[in-house]
Amino acid sequence: MRLGRKPVLAGLAVLALAGVLVWWWTHQRVYPGTDDAYVGAHVLTVVPEVGGRIAELAVDENDHVAAGDLMFRIEDRALKAAVDQARARADAALQSAGAAAEAELDVARAASREAEADYLRQEGLFRRNDVSQSALDRALAARDQALAEETAAAQQLARAQASLGDEGDRNAGVREALAALQMAEIDLDHATVTAPESGWIANIDLRPGSVVTAGQALFSLVGDAEWWIEANFKETDLTRIRPGQPAAIGIDLCPALDLEGRVASIGPGAGAVFSLLPAQNATGNWVKVTRRIPVRIALDPVPEAARFCLKAGASATATVDTTAAPGP
């Protein structure tokens, strides 16, 4: 009788094991998970838009900054001088647009009036026989020359107005000078660099007195306003995963911390597709390997006390509940 119990117990053990395996397979299918996941955040590269010497440095490695906080300031004396120079040129352009040609016309008109008066005076003296015919002829020639110079000055003014355009700030030369002034003021504003968003300073090797150039990458700013999980799921797990489904998140840095999130998006291709040297499988010894597709999971608001556990690139785990209806 005792010998008859062994096969029964063995059968029960096999059934129990089979039940566990079925439960595990079903659970993995309904709640797909992966430990190939990492914490993601916006990492900004801080680049100056103007070059110069660092006059003030307000941040250091691992410092936290709020949006709008001063990070560093570039020596701006030359930039201020450029603004003053551009402003002076703009003022001069506003004052002198067509003024030179108008001044020449005024001089020509005055000379013409004077020549006309001299001719009339010489003509009166000639009638009284007080001057010779040659003197009257010279006065007439001077008057005609003055009239010709007045006409030429008027034509020169017309050409100047046609080439310069409208008066005041509608004049092409004036607009060019005002644009140069605006660019100089923008460069001066760029000498003061503030944080575009709140976050943490990283990878900084900058000191007061260092000379930087426009477009030079100086350090990074890891934003703390938005966090997500970049989870790489097996392609066979994606049959039920949809955007909006809830997900449970674990952070290796803080094992006791349980976070929640929702599937934000599913990548358009496997990670190998976007690598610098994509794998070439057109060989005779090809072995099929299950690919992994990146899935971005947006984290729900994280308690302030738990924010220490969020580090860009930190390892994480993600499990998606595919039984829940996708959210909005």
Rank of each mutant, 00 (worst) to 15 (best):
V212C: 09
L206E: 04
A108Y: 13
E167M: 04
G261P: 10
A90D: 01
T323Q: 04
P278S: 08
A318T: 03
V295T: 06
A225L: 08
D69T: 04
F72M: 08
L147N: 10
V289A: 11
A195P: 01
K311F: 07
P301Y: 04
V46R: 00
G250P: 01
D252P: 05
R87Y: 03
A115Q: 09
D35I: 15
R87N: 08
T322G: 02
A93R: 05
A66T: 04
A282H: 09
R73F: 00
G19A: 14
V43M: 07
G51F: 07
R29Q: 14
W227R: 05
A153E: 11
A172K: 12
D60C: 00
R113P: 01
A256S: 15
A154K: 14
F308W: 13
F233G: 08
L12P: 06
D76W: 03
G124S: 12
A103C: 00
I293Y: 06
L15V: 12
L253P: 02
R77Q: 10
D224S: 08
E176R: 15
D252I: 10
V14Y: 10
S112M: 15
E197G: 02
E149W: 02
G168S: 09
H42G: 04
T290S: 10
E75Y: 00
Q161W: 09
K234Q: 09
V131H: 01
F219I: 00
H27N: 15
V22T: 14
N129Y: 05
D187P: 10
I297K: 02
W200K: 05
L253V: 14
G271K: 03
T317A: 05
L157Y: 13
V83D: 09
A146Q: 08
F219E: 01
E102M: 03
I74V: 14
A117M: 05
R307D: 04
A298M: 06
R143G: 03
V212P: 04
F219M: 02
L12G: 08
A270M: 11
I186V: 15
D36A: 14
A81P: 03
L140D: 13
M1H: 11
H42K: 02
A86P: 10
I297A: 05
G51Y: 10
W25P: 01
A142R: 15
G173A: 14
V287A: 07
W200H: 02
G40C: 09
I229G: 04
D144C: 03
G52M: 11
P301S: 07
D69M: 01
E75G: 05
A97Y: 04
A279P: 01
G250I: 03
C309A: 14
Q280E: 14
A117C: 03
M183W: 12
T239Y: 08
T192R: 11
A18E: 11
A264G: 01
P243L: 07
